[in-house]
Nucleic acid binder design. Structure first.
Lengths: 237, 237
DNA sequence: CGAGAGGTCCTGTATATACAGGTTAGATGC
DNA sequence: GCATCTAACCTGTATATACAGGACCTCTCG
């Protein structure tokens, strides 16, 4: 006949989630087995399996083979935040994004840079760029980046105003792995000047390391004015 | 015969990911269709479908019905960080966790609190607690929390040293939704004192709002010493 | 009385099959 | 030449079926 507005497995998920939301099943409680869902909701076992597998992936349930399916202990589960591309973020807000290149050069590979970029990098030098990103003319991020020349040998000739460094690196080298560390720090003097920070303003620092072709590709320190930047995350069961 | 060490769909995923990692398929490139995977790897279409669906969920691929499957544009994709339970985190590091209750009382529902907790809350008062969490005796987090009395009427009698407020709330009210906002701020005077902050030290502030039974349950400001706390995230294709 | 065997229920995986509906390109008709 | 219709291919969903292996309970045998 006509198409179903929502898939069956979504209805199964909804049915299970509703009984968790109602408080009928608290954390650790055993929920219906696949066979019980099959009987109760008149669906095939594969459909029930997919619904439950989705909820396990979402962190709502947890399973033990041979034992059963249980409401996950959300106390222990982490809730995720998203770190996104700053240029895309700004444009999605309908604002103007502009980048200004402060510096782009070849530098000696110091011990500190080598430690950040990964000890496996053999090269004697690295590429270093400092770019300031503006939202409607207001500085929002100072991007201080070291790039492994083995991964991006042409980095010095990239127009970092037209393309963000991250976009360029993604294009020339397949991204395998990204690590982020987020901290609140007091601003360095040069960063405070570039961001136009008030006297006691804090900086949200994101350190991002990327890997490509089994070696470190780039290490970036992204400094954000504390009063103008935030990370958001929503977990909705 | 004997059990397969790794599931078939994992091998299919690996096969696709390997060709992306090698650079053969860059962002936006079209990857093999399910039928092509079926022919190439001699698996059933359902198995190929599951492998691809997993990779879509992981953000590696994206699909358009009727068109095909494509390598996701990781530039646009956000990479997630995890916000976890501080007490569990500390204990997992093998360190001692201790909590100290600074204040626990009923307060008037001010306009500001009502705005934070959600305008739908009808109650004329709210519960307010301030708890300091210590890792091996060093203050790590100041937890400043407002609780909706309709969700947790017994909050004033909870032993916040034995149980964290978040754990208690999860137990008495099924968690439906959690929102996080992360910012870097200059410390308030009282927070600086409780955390024992250095003069120019910054604070990583996590604001967490939780919902239960279709209404806001709790609003918490989690203040962390910038020099002692960080959020980490790893994205591994 | 205790240990081991077997049965039952559970999850996990894999397959063949089927139909609905989106997208595109090429064939067909005006 | 242009618009339209159709066939081919794609994803998305749903089902029935099958077997492997883990966990647990019970029954039986020594």
């Amino acid at each position: 006949m006509s198409a179903l507005p929502t898939p069956l497995y979504e209805k199964v998920k909804h049915h299970v989630v509703a009984r968790i939301r109602s408080g009928e099943w608290g954390p650790g409680a055993r929920v219906l087995s696949e066979h019980e869902l099959v009987r109760e909701l008149k669906v095939s076992r594969m459909t029930a399996n997919r619904a439950i597998r989705d909820l396990v992936h979402a962190g709502v349930l947890s399973r033990v083979a041979g034992l059963g399916t249980f409401v996950a202990d959300l106390r222990a589960a982490g809730h995720s935040l998203q770190i996104r591309n700053i240029a895309a973020d700004i444009r999605e807000r309908g604002h103007e994004h502009r980048a200004e290149v402060v510096s782009l050069q070849r530098v000696e590979m110091s011990a500190e840079v080598r430690a950040c970029l990964g000890l496996k990098v053999r090269s004697k030098y690295a590429f270093h760029s400092v770019v300031v990103h503006y939202e409607n003319g207001v500085p929002l991020q100072v991007e201080d980046r070291y790039v492994n020349p083995e991964v991006a040998p042409d980095y010095l000739s990239v127009d970092l105003v037209a393309t963000t460094a991250h976009e360029y690196l993604m294009r020339v080298a397949p991204l395998e792995r990204v690590q982020h560390v987020v901290r609140a720090v007091a601003p360095q003097v040069c960063v405070a000047r570039l961001l136009g920070l008030a006297a006691d303003e804090s900086v949200l620092l994101i350190e991002r390391t990327t890997w490509s072709r089994a070696q470190p590709a780039s290490f970036a320190r992204l400094h954000h004015a504390g009063s103008r930047f935030e990370l958001r995350g929503l977990f909705d069961i």
